[in-house]
Simulated scan of single mutants.
Amino acid sequence: MFKRFWAVFIARNLEFFRDRSSLGWNLAFPLLLVIGFAFIFSGDGRAAYKVGVMEPGTDNAFFQMLHVEYVTYQDIELAKAKLQRHQLDILVEPASQTYWVNPSSPQGYFVEKLLLGQLPNYQQQLLEGREIRYLDWVLPGILGMNMMFSCLFGVGYVIVRYRKSSVLKRLQATPLQAVEFISAQILSRLFIVVAITSGVFIACNLMFDFYMLGSYWNLLLVTVLGAASMIAMGLLMASRSQSEELTGGLLNMISWPMMMLSGVWFSLEGAPQMVQDIALLLPLTHLLQAARAIMNDGAGLADIQSHLWAMTGMTAVFMALGSALFRWQGEGR
């Protein structure tokens, strides 16, 4: 059994790496996207200052200025964390007449001068931290989107092409079982996707020095689980069809909602609850939320265990369904 599995695994890897155009695109596409975003969003881009307030409703003129966004927080530790990452320019607590400012924030310097002009009795507290750029936030989305297309289309079209060209028909005549074939396809694509994504991440990190608070090993685990779940989904979509057009339609029907609802380009925090609930049914959502929690918040495995279990469960369900529905020669054969 292992020899049959290993033979299919090696053959699939060689087939991919010998296709230089496909390999080049998988390497170049995410790299070009990251470089493009680095130049497009190299400036701050905000039209106003952002002030965190620990209690609403104060009548002082400082809290009623134009062109300033005021955000009320109940959790002071959460607000301080945002200030450290330059997501707030200053944090004010009127009850204790205290304010916190990040000395490395240019915006915070000017807001502090405005505050002391209106509230000279407030006491200063310093919080140091590094800025999270939009590029740091969007990086998991870019890499995750590239992984999604590679996992879904790189597996789905391959299976349909094998079936259409009678490759699967020949394999059916061998002792190879469906679960062995599917397992080999999953691990082959998993190896390819993780290797390419890791290489692109390392190259981009050397150029742009991404914000990273958590463990790289935890990030690798999330990458593996996320890729496995999307590969298994792609195999499920191609388990019976012999039509490339139908398979392409099914894969597009899955990939575009994931790209729009999983938080690739923007956060879903302000979206309706129903939209957020639907997004949690998609493996890419769990991949991106877990990756951003590790990179931007320093989360450990215990903090993201719900995402890990979700991706593991999706992988198991998709693989089980794909094995049960798999047909060597397609529908009607």
Rank of each mutant, 00 (worst) to 15 (best):
Ile196Asp: 00
Gly144Phe: 10
Met258Cys: 11
Ala238Asp: 01
Val222Gly: 05
Ala227Phe: 07
Ala238Gly: 06
Ser241Asn: 09
Gly154Lys: 02
Trp217Gly: 15
Ser241Ala: 14
Leu246Gln: 13
Ser215Gln: 04
Thr197Glu: 04
Ala228Gln: 02
Thr197Asp: 03
Ser243Asp: 04
Glu180Gly: 08
Gly249Phe: 07
Phe266Gln: 12
Val193Phe: 05
Leu246Glu: 15
Ser239Lys: 01
Leu235Gln: 09
Trp137Leu: 05
Leu235Asn: 08
Ser166Arg: 12
Tyr134Arg: 01
Phe149Ser: 12
Ser243His: 06
Ser183Lys: 02
Ser243Glu: 04
Met148Leu: 15
Leu206Ala: 13
Val167Gly: 05
Tyr157Pro: 00
Ala173Phe: 14
Leu246Lys: 10
Cys204Asp: 09
Met147Glu: 10
Ser165His: 13
Phe191Asn: 06
Pro140Tyr: 01
Asp209Ile: 03
Glu245Asp: 14
Tyr216Ile: 11
Gly248Asn: 12
Leu246Phe: 12
Cys151Tyr: 06
Leu168Lys: 00
Leu221Cys: 05
Met260Ile: 15
Met258Val: 06
Asn218Tyr: 13
Leu268Ala: 11
Val194Ser: 09
Phe153Cys: 03
Ile202Cys: 04
Pro257Asp: 06
Gly144His: 03
Leu213Tyr: 05
Met237Val: 07
Phe201Val: 01
Val224His: 13
Met207Arg: 09
Ile182Leu: 15
Gly154Arg: 03
Leu187Pro: 10
Val155Cys: 15
Val138Pro: 00
Ser267Trp: 10
Leu176Arg: 01
Ser165Val: 11
Ala203His: 01
Arg170Asn: 11
Ser183Met: 07
Ala203Val: 10
Tyr162Asn: 13
Met253Glu: 03
Asn146Cys: 14
Val222Ser: 11
Val179Ile: 09
Ala271Cys: 03
Ile186Ala: 08
Trp217Glu: 15
Gly263Trp: 03
Ser262Ala: 12
Ala184Val: 02
Leu176Cys: 02
Ser243Arg: 01
Ser267Arg: 12
Phe191Ser: 10
Gln177Lys: 15
Met260Asp: 10
Val193Met: 08
Trp217Pro: 14
Ile196Met: 06
Arg163Leu: 09
Leu246Arg: 11
Thr197Lys: 00
Leu219Gly: 06
Val167Ile: 12
Ser165Arg: 13
Ala184Tyr: 03
Ala271Arg: 04
Leu236Phe: 14
Gln273Tyr: 12
Ser166Gln: 14
